[in-house]
Each structure stands twice: as structure tokens, then as C-alpha cells.
């Protein structure tokens, strides 16, 4: 299923419409609607939708004018989109039984590499190309080290974290690299909205849709679940476990590349501090979304909902002018509460 993985860059040019091929081909004998409903209605996602509803009610009560506006919805979705794309990649890694600590550093490296003066000379296409290739390249290095090293994912991606951040610092020398390519800057502005939807949100939606199809409708997805659940059984069943691992980390790297370009559009600059703690936020979002840290189980929709929960909390705190310490405590509490809640409801499932 290399085709599935490599077709993703095609979706990344932000001017692209939402993927027309997003609805999966119906599996024989199963109506699409029921499958989709069945997926959506899984207990983790349901509990997260509940959490989101509670947050929305709190927002509507405390700040009715500011919270319940189109602007604010656009804002929440936009702020969720960068970390959201990273989380989709990380979800594959965790389902495949691995961990990727390097995502924040790869985002930083790709974002500074694609905003150097030399890269900006090539215009928007050059910047997108650079971001994607740097992300993919880092992911491939991770994958080769882990699959063929073989190295423990924790260690290999920790090493990537350190060196990618170091390289990002070396390229920028600590400076903020401001983007001067108008096409890139315009992409983050209001005029670029397509039917009221910011392009970044469309990219996020596209990546989510592709991720969902990849995980649920392709052999790539089934193999990912298989090697995450039981790598030995997967190997005996004839799955090329090493190659699969390599592709999973490459996919995660590619997602970081996409996210890096989105972050450049959002902030109009590249900085070596970009993507700070993304690894923790992405892993936390995947886990509260119901992805098992030990691998073998997880959903893209759950992860995306997890990201939305965190972004909405941040939004609520800012709207109500509460301090950042309380926000961090709330995020920690949400992680614990969500996981405990899921475990309880999962235990009640047959």
C-alpha cells in the first residue's frame, strides 16, 4: 500500500478542494452509512463528543457572544488544524505499536528549512516541497533506524528530537525567519477562505479523511493494526513488519511536514521554537481519543476529537481571561478523567 502513503502529498497543496475520494468504497454487504455510524458511535468517541458538548455549554454560558460565533468556530478549527495533522500521523505510529517523540522537532526543522531566504526564493511551491521533503526525510530516518536498526522507537525518535531541534537552531541561529512570499501569507488571511472555511481547516479535513480511509479501508491500515497488536503473529501471517514500520514512521514524518507548512502559513514565519511540546500534545490527544498506547487499537476520529477538546479548552480559558497555570492543570485533569471514563465504559462493553 505504498500508493496510499505516497498519494498524500497530492492533498497537501492547500488550494486543493476537500478530497473527492474521501468516502470509502462500500465494503461488500455492508452499507457505508451503518459502518460510519458504527465507527462514530464507538464509546471513546461518544464520550469525547460528550466532553466537547459540556465545554460548548460552558462557553455558551460564560461568554455567549464571543464563544458562539462563526469567527470563534473558525478560530478553534484553525488552531486545531496544525496539531491535528500531526496527531493523525502519531495515531498511526501508536496503533502500530510505536511512539514518535520527534514530531515537534520535525515540525520545527521543516518550518525553518522552508522559510530560509534561499527557500523563499523558490516561492510557495518551493516552500511546500521543502517542508514535505524534510518531514518525509526525517520520518524515513526514524523508520530505517527503528525497523532495520533495529532501535527502540522511544530511543530512535528521542535522538531525532534532539538532532532535528539542533539542526533547526543551527539554520536559524535563533532568529525568527519572517515569510515574505505573499502567496503564503495570503493563504492565512480571510480572503482565502473557501465558503467560509479557512484553507488550513480544509487541509486538516483532507488529511483526516485520508487517514481514516488509510486506516479503515486499506491493507496498509489493517497491517498497521496487526503489527501493533501482535508483531510476531503479523510476521508469521506474512506481513513485512519492517517495511510496514518504515512506512508508518515515514507517514508520521510526512504529516509533520504538512503541519510545518501550515504553521508557517498561520504564523507567517519559521522559528526553531516551533512545534514546542507537540509530541506530548499529539500523544495526549491520541490517548484521550481511545488509542491504546500499547498499540493495536485506535481511531482517527477519536484522535481528532481529542485535539478539538484541547483546543476548545484553550479557547475557553482565553475568552474568560483565565491564567495559563489553571489551563495546564485543566488539561492534565481532562487527560486523567477521559482515560478513566473510557476504561470504565469499555469495561461495561460486552
Amino acid at each position: 500500500m505504498t500508493h496510499g502513503a505516497t498519494s498524500e502529498p497530492a492533498s497537501s497543496p492547500p488550494l486543493g478542494k476537500p478530497q473527492p475520494d474521501a468516502p470509502p468504497p462500500p465494503a461488500p454487504g455492508k452499507p457505508v452509512g451503518r459502518v460510519l455510524l458504527g465507527r462514530l458511535a464507538d464509546v471513546h468517541s461518544l464520550s469525547l463528543i460528550g466532553v466537547l458538548a459540556v465545554l460548548a455549554i460552558i462557553g455558551a454560558i460564560t461568554k455567549p457572544d464571543a464563544f458562539l460565533s462563526t469567527d470563534n468556530l473558525q478560530l478553534i478549527l484553525t488552531q486545531a488544524s496544525v496539531i491535528g495533522v500531526v496527531t493523525v500521523g502519531v495515531t498511526f505510529v501508536i496503533i502500530g505499536g510505536g511512539i514518535d517523540l520527534s514530531v515537534g522537532a520535525i515540525v520545527a526543522l521543516a518550518s525553518v528549512w522552508c522559510t530560509t531566504v534561499a527557500t523563499q526564493d523558490y516561492g510557495m511551491a518551493g516552500m511546500i516541497f521543502t517542508a514535505l521533503i524534510v518531514g518525509l526525510g526525517c520520518g524515513l530516518v526514524n523508520g530505517v533506524l527503528i525497523a532495520y536498526g533495529p532501535m527502540v522507537p522511544f530511543v530512535a525518535t528521542l535522538a531525532m528530537l534532539a538532532s532535528a531541534r539542533g539542526l533547526a537552531l543551527q539554520i536559524t541561529e535563533g532568529r525568527t525567519q519572517v515569510v515574505s512570499v505573499d502567496a503564503v501569507l495570503d493563504l492565512g488571511g480571510r480572503d482565502a477562505y473557501i465558503f467560509g472555511i479557512p484553507p488550513l481547516v480544509l487541509i486538516f479535513a483532507g488529511v483526516t479523511a485520508i487517514g481514516w480511509v488509510l486506516l479503515n479501508r486499506t491493507t496498509f491500515g489493517r497491517r498497521t493494526v496487526a503489527i501493533g497488536g501482535n508483531p510476531e503473529a503479523a510476521r508469521l501471517a506474512g506481513i513485512a513488519v519492517k517495511r510496514q514500520r518504515l512506512m508508518i514512521y515515514a507517514l508520521s514524518g510526512l504529516c509533520c511536514g504538512i503541519a510545518a507548512f501550515m504553521l508557517v502559513v498561520l504564523s507567517g514565519s519559521g522559528q526553531n521554537t516551533n512545534g514546542n511540546l507537540y509530541e506530548l500534545n499529539a500523544i495526549a490527544a491520541a490517548i484521550i481519543g481511545g488509542t491504546l498506547l500499547s498499540g493495536g487499537r485506535g481511531t482517527i476520529i477519536g484522535s481528532v476529537l481529542g485535539v478539538l477538546v484541547f483546543t476548545t479548552i484553550t479557547n475557553l480559558f482565553t475568552l474568560n481571561n483565565l491564567d495559563s497555570a489553571g489551563q495546564q492543570i485543566a488539561q492534565g485533569a481532562i487527560i486523567v478523567a477521559a482515560v478513566l471514563l473510557q476504561r470504565r465504559s469499555a469495561a461495561q462493553q460486552p
Binding site: K63, D65, A66, S69, D71, N72, L75, T78, Q79, T176, L263, L266, S267, G268, S269, Q271, T273, N274, G275, N276, T314, N315, T318, L319, N320, N321, D323, S324
Partner: peptide
Amino acid sequence: KVARQAAEFTVESGQEVMSGLLQAQS
């Protein structure tokens, strides 16, 4: 002074927190 929010001395956090502040303070 109607609002105070903390960013992290980074461009990314500045964009994120400021966009929320603008939303909160019309």
C-alpha cells in the same frame, strides 16, 4: 486593563494566544 494572557515568547504562541484575545475582546 480588561484582559491579560500569557504567551511563550515564541511566534507560534503569540499567534495562538493573540487570536484568542482578539476573539474575547471585540
